[in-house]
């Protein structure tokens, strides 16, 4: 299973980025290989418009099973993400990726 996080850095102790569209990085955890890979989203961060849909496109390409983010994607991004077979959890802000992952495992995050 692959889990995607919106984050400000690329390691477990990096803070979550509460923003979806303008997130600095997308971090992907593969629980079979137990590896963390990251994708720089800086190009999208600089978009004037449509950051949400552009990031949704990236998520689509990474095709995770679960997405964990902070504020929750905006309505456009949600509409795009709903096309994918993926569960989305929000309200993981003010914490590290590791903490967000723990909260997700305990079922403490809000599913969208």
């Amino acid at each position: 299973m692959k889990i995607a996080f919106t984050a400000k850095g690329t390691v477990w102790d990096s803070m979550m980025d509460p923003r979806f569209g303008r997130t600095m990085f997308i971090v992907l955890y593969d629980d079979e290989s137990r590896t963390l890979t990251s994708f720089d989203n800086g190009v999208v961060e600089n978009e004037a418009h449509g950051a949400g849909t552009a990031t949704a496109q990236k998520i689509f390409e990474l095709s995770p099973d679960v997405l964990i983010t902070g504020n929750g994607p905006g309505s456009h991004a949600v509409q795009a993400l709903k096309q994918m077979n993926m569960r989305i959890f929000a309200e993981a802000h003010d914490m590290t990726i590791k903490q967000a992952f723990e909260k997700y495992k305990k079922g403490e995050l809000k599913e969208i």
């Binding site: 923003r19 303008r22 600089n46 978009e47 004037a48 418009h49 950051a51």
Partner: peptide, 8 residues
């Protein structure tokens, strides 16, 4: 264009 990006 005040798109919100500068605000962000």
């Amino acid at each position: 264009d005040n798109s919100g990006k500068l605000v962000a």
